[in-house]
Design a protein around this nucleic acid. Structure first.
Lengths: 233, 233
DNA sequence: AATACACGTTTCAATAAGTGAAACGCAGTG
DNA sequence: CACTGCGTTTCACTTATTGAAACGTGTATT
């Protein structure tokens, strides 16, 4: 049995995704975006609406509903890596003034893998990078993407200048665990998340980048230690 | 046309909700919890899995997936009330040391209405109330519930001692807008959210409660002003 | 004004799609 | 060894989903 997916549900979830991506969507737009007939889109959106996953605003457009907010928040709170990483984020922000993030790998089938920002702490500089939580970035060409795919060089961190966004420099380090075969031998490493700093490029220079890079790598290691303590004893 | 809901989608969403509520669920548990046959539950969970809404962990149990995290975070970031309220939360925490929250009304059909915590700022006391984001509380017997249903007394805030949780006192104030008829006459008020402080009861006394209550009410009013500025000009 | 267009909505017949009982292999338990 | 519960697969039944078409309404276009 290869992939016995129920089409109806797939379509509904696609619709839900469209609405969340766009922030708000009219019925016709939603139908076009998902290539569904208006009647089908309407029926599915009504189902999503009656279950609280979307809602209709005053203008009659569909918006993300509170249920999705609730489930997302619950899911986030069950991601133990976030609570483990929060102290590290705080320390990074305190030391650098720049915004700091936690990323994980989000594996959606077609279109390639992406990285997903699941937590952040805002920097203190008045010009700062902000609010990427919930956003995905391509694995190619982003610092966190490189780190998540295991392409971290000796230095322990990756720097990408003007990768995803212009005028922005990203510095990322992996939180990686050793994987073991049943007999106990080490088989490789698995990156469970990445810690990253995203800052305006004009504020960076080689020295600062090295300082931040080493800090992020060190904090990533701290998070790893906390993670292992939670999962081993 | 009364309620043309698609059964398949409803079931899938129900399944998704179960998994998120429980944190992790085995197939059999999920099937029982939703009263579905094992084969149907399996098929739907597989669909949810292939779209990233749930995932199977190492033990083969279903857990909330990253897609739900992503959409939830996106939806949260589109809730403008949160960003408007964050400065107020900060100020409340700074002034009181207690955890502060934003609640909205989550209207799920059966089982009655509930309030939903959609944002919070942690208090600074070492003993503090923490991490209710994503959680729902009954409208009856909770301070934020009372406030959300419009039952705010003259004082402008509601206090509930040991309502939802033992040894916890909650103080809530409404963020309410006037509603108007087409002709411009005021028809009533609509509570769009609530601001609340949740603290260990042993730390409270009548005087402190009054201070906090007035602060929360004042900050709620600040948020309202910011909200109206954003939606009027 | 008259026309054309796009949107949200409803209806309905065709059939594609979802359903659950049953059967299977497996692992743990008494 | 028999027994129970789990995850999984298969398959015939039929129900629930589907999309074209038609409608009313409001908004551009002429």
């Amino acid at each position: 049995m290869a992939e016995p997916s129920t089409r109806t549900v797939e379509r509904a979830l696609q619709l839900l995704g469209s609405v969340c991506d766009a922030g708000f969507l009219t019925l016709a737009d939603a139908a076009r975006g998902t290539e569904l007939s208006a009647s089908t889109a309407l029926r599915l959106l009504r189902t999503l609406e009656s279950t609280g996953f979307v809602r209709k605003d005053d203008e009659g457009a569909y918006r993300p509903g509170l249920r999705i907010v609730q489930l997302g928040a619950q899911a986030l709170s069950h991601e133990s890596i976030i609570s483990l990483a929060e102290p590290a984020l705080d320390r990074i922000v305190e030391a650098t003034g720049e915004s700091a993030y936690v990323n994980v790998q989000a594996h959606h089938g077609p279109g390639g893998d992406h990285g997903l920002y699941i937590a952040m702490r805002e920097g203190t500089h008045s010009v700062r990078h902000s609010s990427w939580v919930g956003r995905t970035v391509p694995m190619e060409g982003s610092a966190s993407g490189a780190v998540l795919s295991g392409k971290t060089p000796q230095a322990g961190y990756v720097v990408v200048d003007r990768g995803v966004e212009a005028d922005v420099t990203a510095i990322a380090a992996p939180i990686a665990v050793q994987t073991h075969a049943p007999d106990g031998t080490t088989t490789g490493t698995r990156v469970i998340a990445a810690l990253s700093v995203v800052a305006p490029s004009y504020r960076m220079n080689p020295e600062k980048i090295r300082t931040i890079g080493e800090l992020v790598a060190a904090e990533a290691h701290n998070v790893l230690t906390a993670y292992q303590q939670e999962n081993q004893p």
